[in-house]
């Protein structure tokens, strides 16, 4: 479904992603793991069109996305839950969610999607009129995921959804991701919490210093000695 071929991207003189190649198949949850500064966020931003590609190509269902701006990438069917959530703090939860429905598909099925978002995150239904900036971190993450779902994407990308959240909340968020995936949505997940990411995903890629160093089934990687030593502290 999504194919990255030797993607290069970076900031200024720093090339944070060097020759990243990976593939996400329809219906999968794919995790992209690695330590801080390995180039995970850069890769996601390059896919989303928020950062220009310096080399390589990005394809969604055979269609080249390279060179498109963020608006065109969202319209093509990729929704992005960015690091730090990036909500609209002085707008209400309802406004934040509805602003996510900017694609043709999202607009057409707005009410239906909103109902599904409330099924996944009942807490949001109670807080509809509240300003997003006054929510707890976990609730804000729910709004960010809900806002991305409102676009009715074919691929959902999440950047560090567990960042700064209490373990109980992280567990709930990951359970929701599994539920969203069962709805038929393909997910690309960037995560520093390697254990959680490998447990919830089908396949995973390990990113080190801007390149993919290891790839495979999540279950296999979970048992891999190198992964255990480098990321799981065992």
């Amino acid at each position: 479904m999504l194919r990255l071929d030797a993607v290069e991207a970076g900031y200024g003189d720093v090339m944070a992603a060097r020759a990243v190649s990976l593939e996400v198949r329809a219906g999968e949850i794919v995790a992209l793991i690695g330590s801080n500064g390995a180039g995970k966020t850069t890769t996601l931003r390059a896919i989303a069109g928020l950062l220009p590609l310096r080399g390589g190509s990005v394809e969604l269902e055979g269609r080249r996305l390279s060179g498109l701006g963020p608006a065109a990438v969202v319209a093509a069917g990729i929704a992005h839950v960015p690091e730090g959530r990036q909500l609209f703090p002085t707008m209400t939860v309802r406004e934040n969610l509805e602003l996510g429905a900017r694609t043709a598909a999202g607009r057409a099925r707005r009410a239906e999607t909103l109902t599904r978002v409330f099924e996944l995150f009942p807490r949001l239904a109670e807080r509809l009129g509240q300003l997003a900036g006054t929510l707890s971190g976990g609730e804000q993450q729910m709004v960010a995921i809900g806002r991305a779902l409102m676009a009715r994407p074919r691929l959902l990308m999440l950047d560090e959804p567990s960042l700064g959240l209490a373990p109980v909340v992280v567990g709930a968020i990951f359970a929701n991701l599994t539920a969203i995936n069962r709805d038929g949505l393909t997910i690309l997940l960037v995560e520093q919490n390697v254990l959680r990411a490998l447990r919830c995903s089908h396949r995973a890629y390990v990113l080190e210093n801007g390149t993919i160093t290891l790839a495979g089934d999540s279950a296999t990687l979970l048992a891999d000695e190198r992964i255990k030593r480098a990321y799981l502290g065992r």
């Binding site: 701006g69 963020p70 969202v74 960015p82 609209f88």
Partner: peptide
């Protein structure tokens, strides 16, 4: 109008949801 407020609130967030 809501988009104008969203872009005022968080321009990066507005870009993420596909706003020009």
């Amino acid at each position: 109008g809501r988009l104008i407020r969203a872009a005022a609130d968080n321009p990066y967030g507005a870009m993420v949801i596909g706003t020009d």
